[in-house]
C-alpha cells in the first residue's frame, strides 16, 4: 500500500520547539504579544491573556498530541478576527474566559491555563459545554482547526488529487491486508 507520511512538513528546529506539551506554554509580553513555543500572536481584539487561554481551551476541545500549539493558535486567530468585527462576539469570548478562569480558581486555586491535568480542565469545560461561549469556540474550531491544510497532513489526509491524476495509479485499490 502507498502509505501517507503524517510527519509535519516543518524544520527540525520547529519540531523540537513544538514538543508535545499537554499544557500550552504561552507568555504575554509587555507589548501584548502572546509568545508560545514556535508561535506568536498579536491579538487584534482580544486581551492577550484571553487569547492564550483560548489556545489551551482549543487543544482541550480537540486534543491531538501530534499537533503543535501553533495550529491551535491559528484557529484562535479566527476567533480574534471575529471579535474584532463584532463587539458581541468579543464580549462573549472575554466574559466566557473570565467565567472559566473563575471556575478554575474555585476548583484548583489557579487560572484555567495553569491547571495541570487535561481531565481536570475537561471537567471544567463539560460544566459549560451547553453555553453559547463554549459552543462558539467549539463551532469555530470545526473549520478553524480541521480546515487547515497542515492539519490534513498530520491526520494523513492527502487533499486535492485531480492535478495529480486522481488515484487511479496512486493506490485507490492498493489495500493488501484484507
Amino acid at each position: 500500500m502507498r502509505l501517507v507520511d503524517k510527519r509535519p512538513k516543518v524544520s527540525r528546529r520547529e519540531v523540537l520547539a513544538a514538543g508535545g506539551a499537554a499544557l500550552v506554554a504561552a507568555t504575554v509580553t509587555p507589548a501584548g504579544v502572546v509568545m508560545g513555543k514556535a508561535w506568536a500572536a498579536t491579538p487584534a481584539a482580544l486581551k492577550p491573556e484571553t487569547f492564550a487561554t483560548l489556545v489551551q481551551m482549543s487543544r482541550d476541545i480537540y486534543p491531538h498530541d501530534n499537533f503543535a500549539d501553533a495550529l491551535y493558535a491559528t484557529a484562535v486567530e479566527g476567533l480574534d478576527k471575529a471579535a474584532k468585527g463584532d463587539a458581541g462576539t468579543k464580549k462573549l469570548l472575554e466574559d466566557g474566559v473570565s467565567v472559566l478562569d473563575a471556575a478554575a480558581q474555585k476548583a484548583h486555586k489557579m487560572p484555567y491555563d495553569q491547571v495541570g491535568w487535561e481531565l481536570d480542565r475537561v471537567i471544567l469545560l463539560r460544566a459549560i459545554e451547553k453555553d453559547p461561549f463554549f459552543q462558539k469556540v467549539r463551532g469555530h474550531l470545526v473549520t478553524g482547526l480541521y480546515n487547515q491544510p497542515k492539519v490534513w497532513t498530520l491526520l494523513g489526509y492527502e487533499g486535492e488529487s485531480a492535478s495529480k491524476g486522481g488515484y487511479i495509479d496512486r493506490g485507490f485499490d492498493d489495500i493488501n491486508w484484507i
Binding site: 503524517k6 476541545i61 486534543p63 501530534n66 467549539r138 473549520t143 480541521y146 490534513w152 491526520l155 489526509y157
Partner: peptide, 26 residues
C-alpha cells in the same frame, strides 16, 4: 475528507473521544 468528517462524524462531539477518531483517519 477531513474537513467534512470533522463536521459530520458526530456533530457537537468534542474531547478525546472525538479527536482520537480523527487521529485514525487513514
Amino acid at each position: 475528507g477531513v474537513p467534512f468528517l470533522a463536521a459530520f462524524l458526530d456533530p457537537g462531539a468534542w474531547g478525546r473521544e472525538f479527536s482520537s477518531a480523527m487521529d485514525m483517519y487513514p
